[in-house]
Design a protein around this nucleic acid. Sequence first.
DNA 1: GCTAAGTCAAGAGCAGCGCTCTCTTTTGTT
DNA 2: AACAAAAGAGAGCGCTGCTCTTGACTTAGC
Lengths: 250, 250
Amino acid sequence: MTEVKETAAGVDRPLTPRQRARTQTIADIVRLGRQHLATHGAAALSLRAVARDLGVVSSAVYRYVESRDELLTLLLIDAFGELGDEVDTAVGQAPEGDHRARFLALGRAVREWALREPASYALLFGSPVPGYNAPAERTTGPGTRVIVSLVGILDAASRAGQLSVPADGSHQLPPTLAADLAAIRSEFGLDLPEELVARGVLVWSSLFGAVSFEVFNQYGPDTFRVPAELFDHHLAVLAGIAGLRAHASR
Amino acid sequence: MTEVKETAAGVDRPLTPRQRARTQTIADIVRLGRQHLATHGAAALSLRAVARDLGVVSSAVYRYVESRDELLTLLLIDAFGELGDEVDTAVGQAPEGDHRARFLALGRAVREWALREPASYALLFGSPVPGYNAPAERTTGPGTRVIVSLVGILDAASRAGQLSVPADGSHQLPPTLAADLAAIRSEFGLDLPEELVARGVLVWSSLFGAVSFEVFNQYGPDTFRVPAELFDHHLAVLAGIAGLRAHASR
DNA sequence: GCTAAGTCAAGAGCAGCGCTCTCTTTTGTT
DNA sequence: AACAAAAGAGAGCGCTGCTCTTGACTTAGC
């Protein structure tokens, strides 16, 4: 392995020890950053504190991380990735044909991750950190995994003929909105009718609304003794909104 | 009016000039705080900056406001009050018997206020400010006005016999949740059946989920060209969820 | 009218922050 | 062994929230 560096101008020589050490240090910084995020919140995230925990003087971390904002970006990507992984795993464990179960698994996975990592959740879905603008080219990819997964579930259900546009629901779509929804349909090659794409977006935002209320403590402290029950009820109703009927024949 | 101070040991002598000046200064501090909140965000709210704008040395503001957290509390109460007022006004302008219109007015009022005052909205419904705990005894009152208004609308509709529990929706409620919902029913003397109280809570959190997604820019920048259309569509679906049928005879 | 109590602004100071610059040490490579 | 690149150390700038002391001023009671 050591000799391979002879591939002189080769495209991918396998990392010098320096590069290895550097990568490891950055990973340590992100790990410590996550700890601080969890214990003190995003606004209190301090490069100096991370440096202390790293056993290094404050200015040294600037060799690895350009700025506090850069660290926030790394944490953002890290968190999006973790959420996406957990959602994918949960959805993958549900039976392939049971689209309603897959939707419920997605929702529960989001909630459980959010409750386990409230600081990371707040970073992703709470108030934007003032003065910080996430670089879209690095964050939109990881940031869209949940909605892509959700739309994928609905589309699969639609193709399987198991999605019914609710009876009450044939609201007339205004033209601009219809065009925007049509653009989404074609961009993702969806089978879903536009009305159900719109409902998918509603379900998406409602899901995160419910999670946010719970994570951010908008319900009183003692109003709901078993919040998971309330959340499951919400999920069941939302599944209906999206057109996923309660355990159909299959 | 000026002589009235003669009511010596009376319960409410009409404010000494000192008290008047003090009240005015506190109001000024809140006003400047709101400006800073709007321009720089909650985390960057700085008493020193407020002091500068007030034309006073930094330590002087501590005579009026106990701490930065105290100022946050004042801003919180101020914002809750403003949101509550706007919602009440909007709901009040809709025809008394048209419960669906009242609901739509409530939702639009929330959205419009949130888009107009994104920083205040973030303070109320975004990530909790780390290290800050809102004093419940001062904030729960103003903080519950929207949900109280929403539940009031649904209850009025229910009493008028215009609320129908949706056909698809008779989900069995687990016992603890049912008990919690029953407690809410009796606390507010509601006519609403428990299933519809639960749906009211869902609609509540969904409403704020939709507003948060828009205010916090979770949709891409160009996904929906007329967000109001999407929001109105969401509101229409949510009205259905809550049991408010589309413009029934009334 | 004068004195005592209460009120308030100012300034210095502490510890923490992000970030930059310069200088020294370490480390991998030749 | 010699050298250049990388990394750490330290000082320093301007900012933050907050505390404490000092001095000026306003109000209230005798």
